[in-house]
Amino acid sequence: MTSREPRKTVTLLCPVEYLGSLLIPSFSVVGGMIMMLCFTLRYIFTPPFYLRNIFKQMVEIGVNSMPVVLITASFTGAVLALQSHTAFKRFDAETLVGTVVALSMTRELGPVLTGLIVAGRAGAAMAAELGTMRVTEQIDALETLATNPVRYLVVPRFIGGMLMLPALTVLSDGIGIMGGFIVSTRVLGANPTTYMTRTWDFLEMEDIFHGLLKSFFFGAAIALISSYEGFASEGGAEGVGKATTRAVVLSSMAILISDYFLSAWLFK
């Protein structure tokens, strides 16, 4: 594109231009996402509401993600128990394994792992589906049918993400604790009663609710980022593929980065 310009200028401007070529698109991505978020938030509260789409997305994000989330959570709880048992045994503090598993699951691993799984599964699906709709003009078709595509497509995903992530996190907390319990009592020979006492005594509703609040944000972030990437995709199948990849990468990053700030904010 710049081939006709004098070589000197190219060399001189190269770093600046390169930086600009990196930054300006990412600024416009951020700007686009914020705009989409604003529209989405407005549309959530104003009719028309597409309930059927919301249910469909809830199934897609929540129900269909359940098996993989549950399997992951149970093994996470199990390995947490295994590892913390080994460590705590050195301090004669094995009875704290239940507490560690419960706190880790509810505060951190439940929300984050669920978020990452949903980002990889439902987020990718969202970006791919919406991207395809974009490049095959289905989104345009929606508009010509007097249907706001953000309302019709993004809002249900957003709501689905916000509702289903906490729901999945509840299950993942529970299953994770069960996984830790089974490994501790069956494999490591911990006292089941002590384990459960330690689990429930030291766990606070706050831990669970803060975890759920985090996952609520994760759900919103996944839906928003994936929808945006889908909407912004161009260039046929290849573009859709790239959008899908970016959606997963950005969602995962958003989860991990916002997790830090949410934790810092929520758990002070």
Binding site: R52, K56, M58, V59, G62, V63, A167, V170, L171
Partner: peptide
């Protein structure tokens, strides 16, 4: 239906 699935899922949660 989606509604039924979501309903069952919600009850579990």
């Amino acid at each position: 239906s989606s509604e039924l699935k979501v309903g069952l899922f919600s009850i579990l949660v």
